[in-house]
Each structure stands twice: as C-alpha cells, then as structure tokens.
C-alpha cells in the first residue's frame, strides 16, 4: 500500500514538475562537447568552462533562466537533441544550411573561420590544396571536416576530438589539421607541447557564424535565447568574454 502511495505521489510530483517546466523554462539543459578549447573545455577542476559557457550563462541571466551544462561527445550531440536528452546545444556550432534544415538556430552570436595548422617543418603549404596526396585531420562532423573533404586529392582523417588530431600530427602521421580559428590558435600558439611544433598558415578561409541549436520548432526557446543574446550584445558583455578567452 505504502509503495503504491509513494509511487502515486512521485508521479504527481513529476507531473507537476513537467507542467511547470513546460510552462516556464526555469532551467534549461544544454549540451556541449568540452573538447574544443578555448570555446568549451574541461578545466583542471573538471568544470566545463570556456567562451561558450560564459556566453550562455550571460545570455541566460539576461533571459531569466538558468543553464545546466551536459558534456556530450560531438559525434552524436545532435542525436541527443533529437531524443530530448537536452534542450539546446552550445558547442561552437556553425550555422549551415544542412543543419538549419534539421534544427533551429538562434541568431549568430560570434563569427569565425576555418584555418589550417601544419607542422613548423612544412615551409611551403599555405592551403589545404597544397597538401595533395597527404593526410589532413579534423574533428568528425565539423565544418572543418567538410572543408577538407571538398579538396580533391587530400586524404581526410576524422577524429573524435580535435586534440587527438593535433596529437596525431605531433606523432607525424598527418600533415595538417583544419579547425575553427580560435581552437587552432589555442593548440598551435598557446599549448606548450605544440607551440614549438606547429604553426597556423594563411588566413581563415571560411566565414561562419556560431549559433545555439534547439530542436526544430522550439520557437519559444529560440525567442528567449535571442532576447538574451541581444541584451548581452547591447551591454557589450560578449566583447569582455571574447577578450577573456580568445587571445
């Protein structure tokens, strides 16, 4: 009897929670792949930190909600959104037509471009096309991977995490890595293991905007987040966050 009563009350409580959660999203669950420094990463204390994290927290504050971050592997991060494991993704997601067809995006909150990193010993390569017949690494399912695949004659290698691609280049197995410019700068210019080994070549060769991703049709959340993004930009908080993380 007691068990049934407890269960019933639990169901009631959960139902009530679900209803309130639906009515006013007090807290939203947001997935991020924290292997993309300095945009999102795990610090020494195992906390998820980075540009996107600070930015979304600022947005949420302006929008009057709280955020609970969930560290999720990039490969499959969209599938988790499909199955409702979280409400949104902030993970340096470039707004592309293919992604927009399946998911809804907020307004772009920052713009970046893809860039090529090569070993310092490579004196000639300036673009991906210069690496014909060689292997070029990127993270699976990223705009960087799509750029590499576009170049005929270059063997694309896709990694679960961008750090593994850089490590493979350090081991001499691949000749270049393509990723977002701030991430490239973090690995090639700041990381002490790689600083002496890698260099960034050329200028960013794409123009991309990051957006926060939500499930197709979740208009309320998009509107709420856009409102927050506008407020953050109006207060120039994004500039502060940018100087804090992107050097």
């Amino acid at each position: 009897m007691n068990v049934i009563r407890t269960l019933t009350s639990l169901v009631v409580v959960f139902a009530a929670l679900a209803v309130t959660a639906f009515a006013a999203p007090k807290s939203i669950k947001v997935a991020t792949d924290a292997t993309w420094p300095p945009m999102e990463m795990v610090d020494a204390n195992k906390h998820i930190v980075g540009y996107d994290i600070d930015f979304l927290n600022a947005v949420a504050k302006e929008a009057g909600v709280t955020v609970e971050f969930k560290n999720t592997a990039w490969d499959g991060i969209f599938a988790g959104l499909d199955s409702g494991q979280y409400d949104a993704i902030i993970s340096s997601v470039t707004i592309t037509p293919e992604r927009s067809a399946k998911y809804d995006f907020t307004d772009a909150y920052t713009s970046i471009g893809q860039i090529l990193v090569v070993p310092k010993t490579d004196k000639t390569s300036r673009t991906i096309a210069d690496l014909k017949g060689k292997k070029v690494g990127s993270q699976i399912g990223t705009t960087g991977a799509m750029e590499v695949k576009k170049v005929p004659g270059v063997e694309s290698k896709t990694y679960d995490e961008i750090g593994l691609a850089f490590e493979d280049m350090a081991a001499g197995r691949i000749s270049g890595v393509v990723c977002d410019e701030p991430v490239a700068a973090h690995f090639a210019l700041q990381k002490k293991e790689y600083k002496s080994k890698f260099k960034i070549v050329g200028k960013p060769f794409t123009k991309e905007g990051y957006g926060i991703v939500v499930k197709k049709g979740n208009k309320e959340l998009v509107a709420l987040l856009n409102k927050g993004i506008k407020a953050v930009k109006a207060k120039k908080l994004d500039v502060k966050i940018h100087t804090k993380w992107v050097k």
Binding site: W74, D75, G76, F78, A79, D82, E98, R99, K102, G137, I140, G141, A145, M146, K157, T158, Y159, D160, L164, A165, D168
Partner: peptide, 22 residues
C-alpha cells in the same frame, strides 16, 4: 575507428554526423 582509421564504423559515423540520419 577511435584511432581515426576509416573503417566501416568510422565511415558510418562520418555519414551520420553530417547528415544527421542516425
């Protein structure tokens, strides 16, 4: 496939992560 060796699973994951047809 975790070593970025382009085996059957890695190819599948590449396809799924770009088309979202999981």
């Amino acid at each position: 496939s975790i070593l970025a060796v382009a085996d059957l699973l890695r190819r599948g994951r590449e396809y799924a992560s770009e088309t979202f047809n999981y």
